[in-house]
Design a protein around this nucleic acid. Sequence first.
DNA 1: CCGAATCGTAATAAATGAAGTTACATGAAA
DNA 2: TTTCATGTAACTTCATTTATTACGATTCGG
Lengths: 151, 151
Amino acid sequence: MKRDSRLSSVLHALLHMAEHDQPMTSETLAQCMTTNPVVVRRTMGLLREAGIVASARGPSGGWTITADLETLTLRDLHNALGEPAVFAIGNRNETPDCLVEQAVNAALHDAFAQAEALLLDHFAQITLATLARDFARRHAARRQTTPHPQE
Amino acid sequence: MKRDSRLSSVLHALLHMAEHDQPMTSETLAQCMTTNPVVVRRTMGLLREAGIVASARGPSGGWTITADLETLTLRDLHNALGEPAVFAIGNRNETPDCLVEQAVNAALHDAFAQAEALLLDHFAQITLATLARDFARRHAARRQTTPHPQE
DNA sequence: CCGAATCGTAATAAATGAAGTTACATGAAA
DNA sequence: TTTCATGTAACTTCATTTATTACGATTCGG
């Protein structure tokens, strides 16, 4: 099953952007994430529509964060990406005539709905600021264990 | 995102089998589920390895349930199918060098792990017998609302 | 105004993975 | 021994995501 990694991707991009004062170009972000600039534009474009980032063209252009990291949550990003399907498991036929299949679908639907609600609630409680601090903590820990890294 | 519908499929098959006294052939099950007999064999073969069903070759052969429906749960079936990935959303890179990405992955991992645990716990509480009764209830309800269906 | 930098986006290709199909071997029953 | 049915390998089809190519539109510096 191929997984949608856009949420992971935009998080990665946003945290890098948060550390930069200047706008970052699609090209730079694409290198960070070992992907293609066009893919970056496409995905970041969705965040722009949601008012989370802004883009500027021309020299010294690129992407900047406009949202407040203290209030921006993973849930916001998930929504901005169009609330993609959370589960890789689903019903064979969503609107079956067969009563047996209807009973099966109903049971699975409940289970999936509960799990999705939990996941999205969890997402709503994680802000980008929290993640940025988590990264800072990891960064400090690494500097401690490897005193002279080549950065 | 293409969803794995094997759990839904085998549930459908098992409930039909539960209503039959005789073994059901892959051909018959395939017709029930509008799929191919080989797909049925492939999927049911996993359940056989888990001791949930048995198969017999030759005339009057086919598939029979060997497990106790009162104790067989959706979780058992999920396990028998090889515990396929539950989520359609994942990390871009599971073992990144980048500390930013590590922080992102860690946060997402927690959220997904909790939701998956909830889902699987839910699955563990739904037995096939429960589903069979649910089907019976729907069947009775339909007979009531449509007094003379052509079945 | 020119030219380089950069985003915007359409169109297309490649990659992935589930499901479906074909073909044939194996085994059981009458 | 014939027929029915599973077992399984190999291959094709189909849908979707991601990557790529190509080019147009915009912005800045000189």
